[in-house]
């Protein structure tokens, strides 16, 4: 049986919808992981010990166990304790928290790299510790770590394929559904890969724009 890519266009609509879901879940999880990463970083650096210690355990769990398992736990496991999340929401939470923990590590390093003079400049004007963090330190820390966070976001896009296993009809699951109808795995996996590649190009272009925009303000 030879390769025949002419079967793909008939499923272009389904693949397109799948791609849209992939973009939606990636962007939602990226936003969650970004702001979650900031909050986690501030907790890890400044929260009192009673909050920091359980947080460490939580961070360790997210870093030390497979993302696939985390998705299963959030989607199938939480139902048992009465939390029944739609697959999309479970996927965003799983991906978002997982990458928030990784972003938190990077943002912590960024916060620690902010010059001591910045705190002094803000505090001598009368800003409180919290105001100084919010308005002076964190914005600078985040700007300085945009490139490594961007790398995480590209990894997030690729790992979003995992949410196909909890039934979100994103790009990977859409191509699998097309395969089960046509028995053409090669053609549809290549088509899906091409779609991921194009989305990735868009994401990278977006990240480059952000980097250029903040270049001056550093």
């Amino acid at each position: 049986m030879g390769l025949d890519f002419s079967v793909v266009p008939a499923f272009a609509g389904a693949l397109f919808m799948g791609a849209l879901w992939t973009i939606a879940i990636t962007l939602s999880a990226a936003v969650l992981s970004f702001f979650g990463g900031i909050i986690f970083a501030v907790i890890a650096l400044y929260a009192p010990l009673v909050i920091r210690t359980p947080f460490r355990l939580f961070a360790w769990l997210f870093m030390g166990t497979p993302l696939l398992l985390q998705l299963f736990l959030i989607y199938f496991g939480l139902i048992q304790i009465g939390i029944d999340l739609p697959a999309f929401v479970a996927g965003v939470i799983g991906l978002g928290l997982h990458f928030a923990v990784y972003n938190s590590d990077i943002i912590q390093a960024g916060i620690l790299a902010v010059d001591k003079g910045q705190y002094e400049g803000a505090r001598t004007l009368g800003l409180s510790r919290m105001q100084t963090l919010r308005k002076v330190v964190v914005p600078q820390a985040v700007r300085s770590v945009v490139p490594p966070i961007g790398n995480n976001m590209i990894a997030l896009l690729k790992d979003s394929a995992l949410v196909s296993v909890i039934g979100v009809a994103e790009l990977t699951l859409s191509s699998q559904m097309a395969i089960s109808r046509t028995f053409r795995p090669f053609e549809f996996y290549v088509a899906a890969a091409a779609c991921y590649y194009v989305i990735n190009l868009g994401l990278e272009a977006g990240l480059r724009r952000i980097e250029r925009r903040i270049e001056l303000a550093r």
Binding site: E120, A122, T124, G126, L127, S128, V136, Q140, I214, R218
Partner: peptide
């Protein structure tokens, strides 16, 4: 201290301007 410091301006050797603003 935050209310006291509002009355005391300080200028540093290394300026300490906020580069992102």
């Amino acid at each position: 201290i935050n209310s006291v410091r509002q009355n005391i301006g300080m200028v540093f050797q290394h300026f300490n301007l906020f580069p992102h603003l």
